[in-house]
Simulated assay, not measured.
Amino acid sequence: MSADFWAGYVSGAIGILVGNPLDIFKTQIQAGRVESKDLITDAAASDTGTPSKKYRRWTAFARGAAAPILGYGALNALLFVTYNRSLALLNTGGANERPERPPAWSIWTAGALGGLAIFFVSAPTETVKCRAQVSDPPQSSLSVVRELWKHGGIRGLYLGGGITSVRDAVGYGFYFWSYELSKRSLTSEDDTPNQQALKVLLCGGLAGVVTWASIFPLDVIKTRVQTWDLTTHRPATNAGNAAQPLLRTEQPAATIKHAMASRPSTFHIAREAYAAEGASVFFRGLGICSARAFIVNAVQWAVYEWMMKQLVH
């Protein structure tokens, strides 16, 4: 296969390994399972030798990683191949001739096309990852896949597929746009190899932050849609009854199946979140996500650029 396929695959898998611990926190905050201050409490407890039960085992930081590692490598490979081919077609009319300095509009468009192309991998990967990260008691990615398939078939694996595709198209448009333009501004032919490496890390990190800042509300809604039955509560039947969780793993299969079938629309879930928690709910976890995005994408772009040099030359 082509060099950009393997460079994209390996860089995507490495990016997941680097960023998964912070991604767990981001998903749980977005889904409403924890608050940002809880992360500080857990970190302080860990420093004193008494970590909270929820994060006591280091393996907890790998929750939900199996699906992204397997899926995101393929996703990233498809993303970069589609982006490079689209950019070449938009600027030269040939799929194998990538221009040296393409205009900004074509970079964004090629990135958006790449985002749309990965839908078939991205949607189920995101669904499994998010549900594995917020499930209580913890579930493996394989258990989540089995449960979704059993009660929803192929449709169950694509929960939130519509909002995921919009998020990916917009996000990856800004992703490649911000990376290419920042790289043009910061790098020069006179840079030493060490300077080039540092600037690639910086440009990759900036691209990650810009991307997530542009689509974070969409990502919050996506997470809420994909974990709705794991995190929402039924309204109280009377004033004296506390709300009960809608879905837990010990519930009978019939209840789980009903929860899957009665899922509200994406718009309804977004409106419900806004009514309950205000506009701030759509930016919950942005700080953690920005930190994660900078680290992950700095590493990911550095690995991608290095592999392209090794495979092409």
Rank of each mutant, 00 (worst) to 15 (best):
D4F: 04
D4M: 08
F5Y: 10
W6M: 07
W6P: 03
W6V: 12
G8T: 03
V10A: 14
V10K: 07
G12C: 09
G12P: 05
A13T: 15
I14Y: 07
G15C: 11
G15V: 07
G15K: 01
I16P: 01
G19M: 05
G19V: 05
P21K: 04
P21G: 03
P21C: 06
I24R: 00
F25Y: 07
F25M: 11
F25N: 03
I29D: 08
A31I: 02
G32V: 00
G32H: 06
E35R: 15
S36H: 12
K37W: 14
L39P: 02
I40Q: 11
T41K: 07
T41W: 04
T41R: 05
T41Y: 04
A45W: 09
D47C: 10
T48E: 13
G49Y: 11
T50H: 15
P51D: 08
P51M: 06
S52A: 04
S52R: 07
S52P: 12
K53P: 02
K54S: 07
K54E: 13
Y55K: 07
Y55L: 08
Y55N: 07
R56T: 02
R57L: 11
W58A: 13
A60V: 12
F61D: 10
R63M: 11
A66P: 15
A66H: 15
A67E: 12
A67L: 13
I69M: 13
L70D: 15
G71K: 10
Y72W: 14
G73V: 05
G73P: 01
A74C: 12
A74H: 14
N76C: 09
L79V: 02
L79D: 03
L79E: 03
F80S: 05
V81P: 02
R85S: 13
S86V: 00
L87T: 00
A88R: 02
L89V: 06
L89Y: 00
N91Y: 01
N91K: 04
G94Y: 15
A95I: 07
N96K: 13
E97Q: 13
E97S: 09
R98W: 03
P99A: 05
P99W: 08
E100S: 15
P102Y: 04
P103A: 03
A104S: 12
I107L: 14
I107F: 08
T109D: 10
A110F: 11
L113Q: 03
G114L: 00
G115I: 00
G115R: 04
A117L: 08
I118Y: 10
I118Q: 06
V121T: 11
V121W: 09
V121C: 05
S122M: 11
